[in-house]
Design a protein around this nucleic acid. Sequence first.
DNA 1: TTGTACGCGTTATCAA
DNA 2: TTGATAACGCGTACAA
Lengths: 343, 343
Amino acid sequence: MPITIKDIAKKAGVSHTTVSRALNNNPVISPQTRKRIQKLAQQMGYTPNTVAQSLLTRRTGTVGMVVTTIADPFIVRVVEGVEEIAQQAGYSIFLATSHNNPAREMEVVKTLHRRRVDAIIVAASRVGELYASQLDQIQVPIVLINNQGEGKYLYSVTIDDNLGARLAVEHLLDLGHRRIAYISTANRPKSSQQRLISYQTTLHAVGIIPDPKLVITPTVRGDFYRGQTSLEPLLRAGATGVFCYNDLTAIGLLVACAQQGVAVPNRLSVIGYDDIQESLYVSPQLTTIRQPSFRLGELAMGMVLDLLDDKQVQDQMMFGELVVRASTAPPQIVKEQKKEFVI
Amino acid sequence: MPITIKDIAKKAGVSHTTVSRALNNNPVISPQTRKRIQKLAQQMGYTPNTVAQSLLTRRTGTVGMVVTTIADPFIVRVVEGVEEIAQQAGYSIFLATSHNNPAREMEVVKTLHRRRVDAIIVAASRVGELYASQLDQIQVPIVLINNQGEGKYLYSVTIDDNLGARLAVEHLLDLGHRRIAYISTANRPKSSQQRLISYQTTLHAVGIIPDPKLVITPTVRGDFYRGQTSLEPLLRAGATGVFCYNDLTAIGLLVACAQQGVAVPNRLSVIGYDDIQESLYVSPQLTTIRQPSFRLGELAMGMVLDLLDDKQVQDQMMFGELVVRASTAPPQIVKEQKKEFVI
DNA sequence: TTGTACGCGTTATCAA
DNA sequence: TTGATAACGCGTACAA
């Protein structure tokens, strides 16, 4: 059983109030007794009980972080950003995974509410769309990452999907590609849909009518496997360049290319999304859209701190940027046709 | 301000004690009032305050998980395992990163203690070695992952480094390699040292005297970069096969090989350690030692539950296994020599 | 400068 | 079956 201030008080022959004041550096106390008490507390191995403090102050100094999974390197970076700011500010974070299961996600949010977290940060979730009404009962600020929801206690930090997708497609267009494909995901319907629209709009803008066959919607589970199984339909559709929903998908595709002997970027240009560390691990290294994921986490936690400080906050939008590496190049179809012609 | 049982009591015209009993399904209460109170609580959106409960029961239902970083996929799997069991048992976990900074690590442990977590799980850390004495003051069970420490409140779950390293080296030996290198790390001195010793022992066992030049100790930061910068010294030392401290290191090495045109596995066989997901992303796919990382986390959290249940627990040791993929093959030196001879 | 008394939300004990 | 009261550990208004 841990030491309490009463234990210290008894040993020091003072009231527990005095001990409390001494330990909190309350100015209204004699320097000598303060020293004495502090030393004693140290000796007795006293550690303040934040549980009791919380009950009194109605602040737990904790924040709940809800993610689908930490197997996604993008999310990991976000969590790291959150944790960094939280630790600096003396906050601790509860980490909870929902595995993209809405029921479990709501369960997790309830648990966090029972624990009286000061705020909740939700990354890549459906909470916003589906449960906004129920959430209003939980009068705790909720910061949504990459998910715009509406409601009194809902705030959001977002990275613009439109711009990112446009940059990706424009890059392929600039290289001379015309048969550009998009690999989508059913997992994050919102941002995938957003990127799809931007992809179509960008093509339209240069007079290309998007070919539905060039939009691949894999049905398997897992970003990596969605990429891996997309190679065949891509080739059938005659794509020379492909914009993948995220880097893991692009990497899956690269692996399939290596296994099937499809040359990247010469036969097929591949561009990802996120700029996770792993995009450096593959060969060729991946051209991608860099998302400021760590910063995103920092911003979300910063917003939480502002909210708890009763400051006004505004929903934030951030922007990605193009990172050109080795997986994209001008299409080589002309050359190949020449060769065939010679033969 | 959240609803309390007193609020409910007032509205129901009963004492808060009755409300408490009704909500806890205490048998000594009339079924009707119980129903009535429960319905009322539901309507008013009551959520029990675990903070207050904790103060009384001296149990918070929380566990602190300390890791160096979640950028390491191996650690991520461990965390997932812990979280899975924790969630099932109704426990929440505080996640805290130390970034391999001992001071920060102790700070984090102190914070967790202040929050009165029921137990602490520490992965890949130095806590055990350096601070065992101070830790004794914190009378909270601490489960160490992959780190054997001593002390009254210290327990451990470990994966045997000896066996894993032996399997790796024996695999290369079986393929016919004789110039086998090891890439170590200063980051996890204990297990790296353990694997080094096992590497040497295994070589000795077949009559090979380990060549110090074949032990690479990169000085750069980051597993990936340690691998990437090791290619040159490896080639200088005349290695035909190399055992890497972990998969990230091996992947860094593979990337360097791809960039420098060193054929894997023909010119150089590479074997990693961990079997993280990323070992499937690279080309050639990585031969490695699979560590049961998820299971490791499950076991650690299971041990915590047993400890809190006042059950006897024993330190556990798990074992890895060899996973053969495409990055290892028999050495091709003979062929090359032949070629030179012919020329 | 120090101490007494109260309350934070909940459960447990005892009495009614 | 229900209620009044105390207690968990701490901070604070008020009194001394």
